[in-house]
């Protein structure tokens, strides 16, 4: 599972699915996410992400995906 070390995670937000409720932004322990100009969630400080999974689990619209950078690169 998620090792709490920074810089290893990739955070993807699908803006079309995001409704801008702000739960992910509010409760992110490392303040990785913030509102963009349209009021939706955007990834501001991806390197700070510790892959706690809070945003992903609490997004009511399934609009955030957090993956490990490495495995992704390998796969592609």
């Amino acid at each position: 599972m998620a090792k709490k070390s920074m810089g290893k995670s990739k955070v993807t937000v699908y803006p079309d699915w995001c409704k801008g409720c702000g739960i992910c932004i509010e409760f992110c322990p490392k303040k990785v996410l913030e509102f963009d100009a349209q009021g939706k969630c955007s990834v501001a400080r991806e390197d700070d992400c510790i892959h706690c999974g809070f945003c992903e689990l609490h997004c009511p619209d399934f609009a955030i995906v957090v993956t490990e950078k490495k495995s992704r690169e390998k796969a592609s």
Binding site: C18, K19, G20, C21, P60, D61, F62
Partner: peptide, 11 residues
């Protein structure tokens, strides 16, 4: 996205 409101816990 589904029809539910922003921030709705149902999702």
């Amino acid at each position: 996205p589904h029809v539910l409101c922003a921030g709705c816990g149902h999702g």
